[in-house]
């Protein structure tokens, strides 16, 4: 199967490379490039992989993919795919910002999409999410579920984006229980912080030792350690990006969904149908771009009251009755 797929891919590539030289983009060849951590990180990258796969299965279209090994390969991977006529090219991760600026300018006829970052070019769609809104909702659930009145947050790399998660979360916690205490930790200051489950577990344990009984992570691969530590201690974790409820059934309260998969899927689909639009695209609660996950793994953990309160808040956020502060608007957070 795998060999077949590669052979087909390679054959298509060889054929299309000549075609592309002859008359531009002859057929539809979407591509996705993952960030450091790889496509099976059970979180951010995996979500984009799932989106691409879902599209591929639905429309029976092959897509090209690449997992970078170092920062230097970002630009090379983008240029490589663009040069070979792939279109659209979707990348997931803010770190692609500068590479995208360079390469997208070189290939004005190719459509690009970048997730979690804004690149202001006429052929680039920038998709950002209102993570603070989703985080607000899981924060409320955490506060209502907590018996100690103390909850935790473990971030990956200490960047404004992750502070945005944290800030929304804290606002949600305080909305449900103004006296609740929130412990916050960041794993590191470099890209390595996305893939350090051991340290993630240690940070979660530290927070639980201080009394936290629900810990939310926004840390990519590092989060596996956070959820594991929570499950080992018999406490609750909250997943992020993908639905991670299944990782430790009964010990994951919920997952803050960030529909990276939807962003990838839409970029592919719009492009195929000729509806690709460049520009700034914000996916929030209203667009179902963020949310929280309820499935058979966690439905017993969530009471009617919690459900009602969260759904109520969700409606108010969409309607604008509740304003959740976005950390990245002014790089500060009113709640802590």
């Amino acid at each position: 199967m795998n060999i077949l797929k590669t052979l087909v891919g390679a054959a298509a590539l060889l054929g299309s490379a000549t075609l592309a030289l002859a008359d531009g983009h002859a057929d539809f060849k979407p591509a996705v490039i993952f960030d450091l951590g790889g496509k099976f990180d059970r979180s951010f990258n995996q979500a984009s992989f799932e989106g691409a796969t879902r599209f591929s299965e639905e429309f029976d279209v092959e897509f090209r993919e690449f997992e970078i090994q170092s920062d230097a390969q970002r630009e090379q991977a983008l240029r490589r795919f663009a040069e070979q006529g792939n279109n659209p090219i979707v990348v997931a991760g803010f770190a692609y910002g500068s590479a995208m600026e360079t390469v997208a300018a070189e290939f004005p006829d190719t459509s690009f999409a970048i997730i979690d970052m804004v690149v202001d070019l006429p052929n680039v769609r920038s998709v950002v999410f209102n993570e603070h809104e989703g985080s607000f909702l899981v924060g409320m659930m955490a506060a209502m579920k907590s018996e100690t009145g103390k909850v935790g947050f473990v971030g990956g790399m200490d960047i404004p984006l992750i502070r945005k998660f944290a800030c929304g979360y804290v606002q949600g916690v305080k909305a449900a229980n103004p006296d609740a205490e929130v412990f916050q930790n960041m794993t590191g200051t470099t890209g390595a912080a996305w893939n350090d489950p051991v340290k993630g577990g240690e940070l979660a344990k530290g927070q639980m030792d201080q009394g936290a009984d629900v810990v939310y992570h926004a840390a990519g691969g590092t989060g596996r350690g956070v959820l594991q530590a929570a499950a080992d201690a018999g406490k609750l974790g909250i997943g992020v990006d993908s639905n991670q409820n299944y990782l430790h059934p009964g010990n994951v309260l919920t997952s803050m969904l960030k529909r990276v998969d939807v962003a990838v899927y839409n970029a592919f689909k719009d492009s195929m149908e000729g509806n690709f639009t460049a520009g700034f695209s914000v996916l929030g609660l209203a667009e179902d771009g963020v949310g929280y996950a309820v499935d058979e793994n966690n439905e017993t953990l969530i009471s009617e009251d919690m459900m009602k309160a969260v759904e109520d808040a969700k409606a108010k956020i969409i309607s604008g009755d509740i304003k959740v502060h976005n950390y990245m608007d002014d790089n500060s957070c009113p709640a802590s």
Binding site: N2, I3, T6, A10, L13, R64, E65, F66, E67, Q69, Q73, Q76, A77, R80
Partner: peptide, 9 residues
């Protein structure tokens, strides 16, 4: 790098 592009397996 080319090998990684061409033969992802």
């Amino acid at each position: 790098a080319e090998l990684a592009f061409e033969i992802p397996s």
